[in-house]
Write a protein that binds this DNA or RNA. Structure first.
Length: 463
DNA sequence: GGAACTCGCCAC
DNA sequence: AAACGTGGCGAGTTCC
C-alpha cells in the first residue's frame, strides 16, 4: 500500500499502468513458422531420447520393480525409485525434506542413464514453457505479455501470459532457441536499454556507504574485479588473461550479489568454486578447474595455500567478515539501524514514496528498498519514453520491460534520436527529478540489425 | 473435474 | 539460529 496521501507514488503506478498497457497492446512479433518447425524438431529429439532411455537397464529395472506404469517426467516416481527402492543415500534434499531429483542432485549420483532425463527435461522446458506458450498466446503472430504492477510486495512488476521477464539468456542453446522466435515488426530493429547495476546504485543512495559510493562514482575502480582478486588471490587482474573475466563474473554473481541479498559464505563457496570454477568439493590436485592463463585454477589456488574446497570455504568465511566489517561497514551498519526502525514501526517507508508493511524478516526489510527503487527508476523512465513517443509521433514503439531494462521496436531512421532520448531520460532527467538519487546512473544498450531476431543482439556503442 | 499443493527452473 | 531477495509457470500429485 502506498503511503497515505503520497501522490507521487500513486502517480507512478497510475501512469506506469497506462504506459505498460500501450506496450501490451503493441506486442512482440513472433515467427510462428519458426516456432512450429522448432517445436516439431524438439519433439522428434525428445522422442529419440525417450526411446534410448527406455532401452537402458536402469529404466527396465525401474519399470520391473514398479507396480504402475512409469511416467519418466515424474520427479516423485524417480525419487521413490532412487531413494526408497534402490535405497541410495539422499544427498540434496528439497525444502520439505524429500530426496531431491533436480539436475544437481542427479549429477551427484553418478548414474549415466540419468543424463537422458536431464536432457529431456531441458528440452521440454524450452518447448512447453516458451515456444508452446507463444503458440497459445499469440494473436496474428504477435504475443501481448501482461505487465502487472499489483502483484509484487516491493512494487516491482511481474509479467504473465506469456511471462516476458524470464526468457532464457544464460544457457546458450535455450537462449538461441527461444529468442530466435522474437522479431521486430518488418523493416524494424530491436533495441534494449539496460540500467547497469541500478539496484546497487539505489542501495548506495539509501545506505550512503562511502566505499560503495566511491566504486560507483570512480570509473577507474571496479568492485567485482577487486573482490575477484581477493577471492582468488590473484597477483594481477588482466581481462586479456584467459579465465580472468570468468573469475570476475564468479565473484560478481557467486559472491557479491548473493552477499548483498543476505546469503552466507558456505553457499557462496559452492557458487564460486563448483559453478564457476568447476572445482570439486575435495582436496584439489593439479590440473583441476577452469584454465587460468597457462595453468589451472586448482594449481593457482594450491600455490596460494588453498589446497582444498574446505580451505576455500574457510577463506570465503574470512572474506564475508571482511566484506561487512572493512569493505562496506556503513552498509552493514545501515542494515542494523534500518531493521531496528522497522521493528519499532512495523513498516518501512522508501524514498520513492512507497510503504511496505507486514511481517518481514531482516533480509526482506533490507532488500526491499533496492528492489523497489531500481524498478521505480525503470518505470519512471518507461513512462517518460512513452510520453515522448506519443508527443513526437514516433513510429518506434516500447514493447516490453524486464525490471531494469526496456525493449523497443525501432524504425531504423529514428534510431539515433530514440537512443539520444532514452539516454537523456534514464541518466539525466531521472536524477534531476528525484533528488534522493545522489550517485550517477548509467545504461548499456544492445541492438539487433533490421529484421533480425532477439537472439542476435549485440552490444551497441552509442556513446 | 478443478483447486491447491510441491518441485524444478527460467529471469532480474 | 539459520543460512538468497522478487516473480511465473509446467508437470505431477492430492484432495474435495
Amino acid at each position: 500500500m502506498a503511503k497515505a496521501g503520497n501522490m507521487e507514488a500513486y502517480q507512478l503506478l497510475h501512469k506506469g499502468m497506462l504506459a505498460l498497457a500501450r506496450a501490451e497492446r503493441q506486442g512482440i512479433r513472433i515467427d510462428m513458422d519458426y516456432v512450429n518447425r522448432k517445436k516439431q524438431q524438439m519433439t522428434n529429439k525428445i522422442e529419440h531420447l525417450e526411446e534410448d532411455f527406455r532401452d537402458t537397464k536402469f529404466f527396465k529395472d525401474w519399470q520391473k520393480r514398479s507396480k504402475a506404469k512409469i511416467n519418466i517426467n515424474s520427479g516423485q516416481q524417480l525419487g521413490d525409485y532412487l531413494y526408497k527402492v534402490l535405497k541410495i543415500k539422499v544427498g540434496k534434499e528439497t525444502k520439505s525434506g524429500m530426496g531431491s531429483t533436480d539436475e544437481e542432485a542427479l549429477k551427484q549420483l553418478n548414474i549415466p542413464e540419468l543424463d537422458y532425463l536431464v536432457k529431456i527435461s531441458k528440452l521440454k522446458k524450452i518447448r512447453d514453457t516458451y515456444l508452446d506458450g507463444y503458440t497459445r498466446e499469440q494473436v496474428e503472430g504477435y504475443i501481448h505479455p501482461f505487465f502487472n504492477l499489483n502483484t509484487v510486495v516491493t512494487y516491482r512488476s511481474s509479467s504473465n501470459s506469456p511471462n516476458f521477464q524470464n526468457v532464457p539468456k544464460r544457457d546458450e542453446f535455450a537462449m538461441q532457441t527461444v529468442r530466435s522466435a522474437m522479431f521486430p515488426r518488418p523493416g524494424h530493429l530491436l533495441l534494449e536499454v539496460d540500467y547497469s547495476g541500478v539496484e546497487v546504485r539505489i542501495n548506495a543512495c539509501i545506505n550512503k556507504d562511502k566505499n560503495l559510493i566511491k566504486y560507483i562514482k570512480d570509473p577507474t575502480t571496479d568492485m567485482h574485479r577487486d573482490i575477484a582478486i581477493q577471492i582468488f588471490k590473484l597477483d594481477e587482474y588482466d581481462e586479456k588473461i584467459e579465465g580472468h573475466k570468468t573469475l570476475r563474473q564468479a565473484a560478481k554473481n557467486g559472491f557479491v550479489f548473493p552477499q548483498f541479498y543476505g546469503d552466507w559464505y558456505k553457499s557462496c563457496a559452492e557458487n564460486v568454486a563448483c559453478n564457476w570454477g568447476e572445482l570439486p568439493k575435495t582436496k584439489w590436485k593439479a590440473g583441476m578447474g577452469i584454465a587460468i592463463g597457462n595453468t589451472y585454477l586448482s594449481n593457482h589456488l594450491i600455490s596460494k595455500g588453498i589446497l582444498s574446497y574446505d580451505k576455500f570455504t574457510e577463506h570465503l568465511k574470512e572474506m564475508e567478515a571482511d566484506l561487512w566489517k572493512n569493505r562496506f561497514p556503513e552498509y552493514a551498519k545501515w542494515k542494523d539501524v534500518w531493521f531496528a526502525k522497522y521493528q519499532k514501526k512495523g513498516y518501512i517507508d522508501l524514498p520513492t514514496g512507497f510503504r511496505c508493511q507486514g511481517v518481514m524478516n531482516k533480509k526482506q526489510v533490507c532488500n526491499y528498498p533496492g528492489q523497489n527503487g531500481g524498478f521505480a527508476c525503470l518505470l519512471w523512465s518507461f513512462i517518460e519514453a512513452d510520453r515522448i513517443m506519443q508527443e513526437e509521433n514516433w513510429d518506434t514503439r516500447l514493447i516490453g520491460q524486464i525490471h531494469d531494462s526496456i525493449l523497443l521496436d525501432v524504425l531504423p531512421s529514428e534510431l539515433d534520436h530514440v537512443v539520444e532520448v532514452l539516454y537523456r531520460i534514464t541518466c539525466t532527467d531521472l536524477p534531476k527529478a528525484w533528488k534522493w538519487i545522489n550517485v550517477p546512473l548509467d545504461v548499456d544498450m544492445e541492438i539487433c540489425k533490421v529484421d533480425e531476431p532477439w537472439s542476435k543482439k549485440k552490444k551497441y556503442a552509442f556513446r
